[in-house]
Nucleic acid binder design. Sequence first.
DNA 1: GATGAATGAGAGTTCATTCAT
DNA 2: GATGAATGAACTCTCATTCAT
Lengths: 192, 192, 192, 192
Amino acid sequence: MQTERQKEIIEAALDLIYKKGIQGLTIKNLSEKIGITEPAIYRHFENKISILVSILDFFKNNTEQIFENELKNDDNAIDKIEHLFSRHFSTFSKMPSLVSVVFSEEIFVNEPVLVGKIAEIMDKNDKILTEIITNGQRKNEIRNDIPAKYLSIIIMGSLRLFVKKWQFLKSVKNLPRQGKELFNSIKLLIQE
Amino acid sequence: MQTERQKEIIEAALDLIYKKGIQGLTIKNLSEKIGITEPAIYRHFENKISILVSILDFFKNNTEQIFENELKNDDNAIDKIEHLFSRHFSTFSKMPSLVSVVFSEEIFVNEPVLVGKIAEIMDKNDKILTEIITNGQRKNEIRNDIPAKYLSIIIMGSLRLFVKKWQFLKSVKNLPRQGKELFNSIKLLIQE
Amino acid sequence: MQTERQKEIIEAALDLIYKKGIQGLTIKNLSEKIGITEPAIYRHFENKISILVSILDFFKNNTEQIFENELKNDDNAIDKIEHLFSRHFSTFSKMPSLVSVVFSEEIFVNEPVLVGKIAEIMDKNDKILTEIITNGQRKNEIRNDIPAKYLSIIIMGSLRLFVKKWQFLKSVKNLPRQGKELFNSIKLLIQE
Amino acid sequence: MQTERQKEIIEAALDLIYKKGIQGLTIKNLSEKIGITEPAIYRHFENKISILVSILDFFKNNTEQIFENELKNDDNAIDKIEHLFSRHFSTFSKMPSLVSVVFSEEIFVNEPVLVGKIAEIMDKNDKILTEIITNGQRKNEIRNDIPAKYLSIIIMGSLRLFVKKWQFLKSVKNLPRQGKELFNSIKLLIQE
DNA sequence: GATGAATGAGAGTTCATTCAT
DNA sequence: GATGAATGAACTCTCATTCAT
């Protein structure tokens, strides 16, 4: 459970990362943004790293929920993946700052705790997606001539690059709508 | 053109980024690695950003060459893309530090010069790949039911995520060999 | 008079000094040790210095009592000094944290109140011991060829260094027993 | 070997410790005293602890030299000890700030490196003094009825407390002269 | 009696960079 | 080309203390 202030700090941190990059996430920027002094931050988080951990935890819960929900429901595999896409896109649309976190692997390279957390997230999501695909292949909803693990990379890789382009290049404008088109392409590729 | 020292500095910088992340690229670390003093670095580069610019230029030339070579030759589109993959994988195999740079978009968020450079690289490579695909579609080497721009995202996204996993998760071991398998999967997906 | 909480705080403070040195005596550590919040400390002591004053007062009362008791009783001087030693040793054995306070002269150098208190303690004990010695010399229990003030330094200096070694170097193990041997040596030196 | 600046820093540090206690030894105070900025200190010492290590090393060399010189020469034991005293007193007279260091055992309690260094110094000096005494006893220059290890404590303890009183209580005025009297008292006590 | 939240002051340290030599 | 020495700005974090509740 998080206090209101903790939530506020995490939101501010996300926004700072979004707007100024990780280098912009300093205790000073953070405290100024919230309107308190620097030491006050330390009432709510032990240190800077634990703020980042909280962000990653928030992100982890968020995405894991998306993935797991799809795993459980009774849709066919293609619909599950479509749902996965649309939920990702709408999440990022609402909180563009989260995108920075997805791609933060490079950034946290020094902090073992954070690296571990990111690896965990990537790993878990990969497992779930692969399982969805495997099930789809078993039920002949997804083509069987390509190993699930590569389909998983192709699907997630597309999703990631697409989101990145939206955020970084601004060449993608309406994420959910254009995302739907991307998904339709993928659907054509992978369906039986 | 670059002097020997400049090349040495860039190589050292790449290695630092690879091993300690961007945060590990400090003038102090750099000078220690090379065995000169900090001010000496400034004899060879105006400032830290110009070192990063040089790195990106190096990377840009490197990849653009790969892409453009493919565009020019007479192979069919699928072979071109295969070649693109294999050349990327062998480049990264030889200089793993370059991977950090490909994915450094988040890191340089503050420096307009760098952001511009990265956007340029992504954009150009995207254009070339899209052109290769479009040509392939025209010649019925690549399926026509999917817009080239999405195929481009799917292909590049797969390549990127695959490389990232190799570097970050160590779940991919032999990049060129496993990369070939990934390409074969993509080939099945996109060929006419 | 001290409340229960005040005693608890002082004991916790002594223990902190003992285990982590004076630098380890922070309001935060103190409150954590006791299980209350930091501001709560200020309900019981005006500020940090008044905690230290209380500690020194506690120590002062403790040692002065030892010294004055000896001054008053009818033993011969040597027995008085033996008693002085054994009472010190048993006190320190029971409360090793007190040792840190005896030798804390350097630490409190900035706080006039504390410096004054320490000087007071050293001075008073010195006076009493000198008086005991002088009386002993007058009654021919202690050799007369050495000025009482130097005997006092020699005796107290030995006591102090011995205790310090016990605490710091762990080269002295059983303080009371080995302390008895030290006293026997001193006895041989000073008796008539 | 130390550079001029390093020596200057150590001297300034000693003076700060002497005048304001260990708490007064901050990088800021240090740099202000010398007339440079704080980061400039770090050109000359890796960190604050290494400054303290240097101080202890300086002190260690200084005292060990005193002790070892006495061990080697051909004087009788009593003369050696007299010499030991007078050299200590003149050292402290010239550099009163060094006294703070001798008694700094409590202060450095948190830094294992420093604690180790202090223990080392105390231990070594103790060993040498005990050896001097033992030799003196063997040659019947020092009384034989008291174990050397206790005589060592008595002698060093006296020396320490005396110096402390001089520094702290100002009850001892002329250290070398009054110190000579103290030694004469000790001489009477320990000679055969 | 005690708490949660906050603060001003200041700690040690790192950074990219400059300048005289 | 390179060095030694230095700097301003910024960093994370800790400290004793206060105040409204």
